[in-house]
Design a binder for these strands. Structure first.
Length: 486
RNA sequence: GUCCCCAUCGUCCAGCGGUUAGGACUCCGGCUUUUCAAGCCGGUGACACGGGUUCGACUCCCGUUGGGGAUGCCA
């Protein structure tokens, strides 16, 4: 038996989006589940569009996602001569031929021809060209491409998720292998690389399902053994369109907004554990019905045969819920640590100021179970850091500008002023005692006090709040609020 | 145009000839709580349509409709 080897082969021509992440993840999970290798290959044959910064981002993102690759990544631009040689070898063995037909037509023109069912390939004359005619044209410098001489018949293969697929060879035609500038086309490079990397299973998007027939024909021509294929359905936006930049551009707050880049999720305060868990469930599920799965559990449970055939719509709300779950399961220390950069970004603290950082660390755990993203932490803790909290108009109206409110705050201030120790227990005991004396339910005191301390009606428990803020801030805020009250 | 593929609640999944069609997210109630969040309990909500096959179809077959993909000297 041969060990499983899979690869993730992105082209560094753009930012890393969630579709890529899903493909990488499924390859990774499959490899680890089978005890095999997960390889990385950079498909940069398109020199014009490939950029080193995208290549770096690929590795950064994979690392962030916890997807570790084995072996040194292969870069296709290092292998151009190999593809060229293999292609010309195919001409030697009569499996491919030089085509002198010109088809450098515009995008629009090509679409139009396709609409009408017209053929774009070779005119048909090139395969039968006389050898002397060929050498004459070559020496004259006529440009040509190399095309595979596709045999008649059909190509059938078994896909691990889609089952048996049959394609008539006439559908693929004599497709191009080598461009007139001598560079390989995607199909050629993929097949040669998968073969030389010893790839046993190819897991990729459905957009390649039909291309697979081409690849199998190429394997046959090249004399290699085709790997096993598994194609994954697409990931779509809420509008059922392929996930793309447009989705990230939808206004914030809109239910249809879906970020499409992995980087955007990281910056928005999503945990990679959550994104990985969520992505794993897009087009796959374990038999158990269990939905919250760690990376290790995913590896343990993953079976590509259970992958869905149906395109999946990316639901940002479920991701956000899941992110909240992962945030809650962080230790308070770890949670605080993760939030610090977000607080700095919101200008609430400076990471260089150790007193501020320490204060932040004691305050952040109070809002941990309320945060859905790390970025939420800034909004949820803002009043701790501001000299004076922003007073919400509605909160003031409901709890402060009420008869008796000022009196309550004043009395509470004097009670808390004389407390020997300003602890959670002491503040709670004294406030409740005061409520009883006044013949009020504790809530009647708690609500205006919360508004006084935070400017808001919602938030952590009042006494945790008081202890975290400290006596000085609390008394100051009670005084300010008393002035607003009456 | 041609070819390939897909089709269960709004969304993500379960189901693989006999189920009151199950779970999760969202939404709506209730409980709990000083508020919010979390948690717990409950509710709304789906087999695209039409033919077959079968004692019996969400499950199998065919067609229709809808959606996606391929058809490049992009990947």
């Amino acid at each position: 038996m041969s060990a499983v080897r899979v690869r993730f082969a992105p082209s560094p021509t753009g930012k890393f989006h969630v579709g890529l992440a899903r493909t990488a993840l499924f390859n990774f999970l499959f490899a680890r589940h089978e005890g095999g290798e997960f390889l990385l290959r950079i498909e940069d044959t398109d020199a014009g569009r490939s950029r080193i910064e995208f290549e770096n981002e690929i590795m950064d993102v994979l690392t962030w996602l916890g997807i570790q690759w084995d072996e040194t990544p292969l870069r296709q631009s290092d292998r151009l001569e190999i593809y060229k040689k293999e292609a010309f070898d195919l001409v030697e063995t009569g499996k491919a031929y030089r085509c002198f037909c010109r088809h450098d037509i515009s995008e629009k023109a090509r679409k139009a021809i396709q609409e009408q069912g017209g053929q774009l390939g070779c005119s048909g004359a090139c395969p039968g060209l006389d050898p002397s005619e060929i050498s004459h044209r070559v020496s004259r410098g006529d440009p040509f491409v190399l095309r595979l001489l596709t045999p008649p018949g059909v190509t059938t293969f078994r896909d691990m998720v889609f089952g048996e697929i049959t394609v008539d060879n006439s559908e693929m035609g004599d497709f191009v292998l080598l461009r007139s500038d001598g560079t390989p086309v995607y199909h050629l490079a993929v097949v040669i690389d998968d073969e030389s990397m010893g790839v046993t299973h190819v897991i990729r998007g459905v957009d390649h399902l039909k291309n697979t027939a081409k690849h199998i024909q190429l394997y046959a021509a090249l004399g290699g053994n085709a790997p096993v294929y598994a194609h994954l359905p697409m990931i779509l936006g809420p509008d059922k369109q392929k996930l793309s930049k447009r989705h990230s551009l939808v206004p914030e707050g809109d239910r249809r907004r879906v970020l499409h880049l992995v980087e955007e999720y990281r910056d928005a305060g999503y945990l990679s554990d959550a994104l990985v868990n969520f992505l794993a469930l897009l087009g796959w599920s374990p038999g158990s019905g269990e939905e919250l799965l760690s990376r290790n559990e995913l590896v343990k449970e993953f079976m590509i045969e259970r992958a869905s055939k149906k395109d999946a719509i990316f639901d940002p709300e479920k991701l956000t819920w899941m992110n909240g779950y992962y945030i809650r399961s962080l230790s308070p220390e770890r949670f605080s640590e993760c939030c610090l950069p977000f607080l700095e970004r919101a200008d609430l603290i400076s990471l260089a100021n150790s007193a501020e950082v320490e204060y932040a660390r004691c305050v952040l755990p109070l809002i941990q179970e309320r945060a859905k993203t790390l970025a939420d932490a800034a909004e949820l803790t803002e009043y701790f850091f501001l000299k004076a909290p922003v007073m919400e108009e509605k909160a003031v109206r409901k709890h402060l500008t009420r008869p008796g409110a000022a009196d309550k705050l004043r009395r509470l201030k004097s009670v808390w002023e004389s407390l020997p120790a300003f602890t959670l227990e002491a503040t709670e005991e004294s406030l409740r005692g005061m409520a009883e004396e006044m013949g009020l339910s504790p809530g009647k005191l708690i609500h205006p006090t919360r508004v006084a301390m935070t400017g808001r009606m919602k938030g952590p428990g009042l006494f945790e709040l008081a202890a975290a803020l400290g006596r000085e801030r609390v008394l100051e805020r009670l005084e300010w609020a008393t002035a607003i009250a009456q």
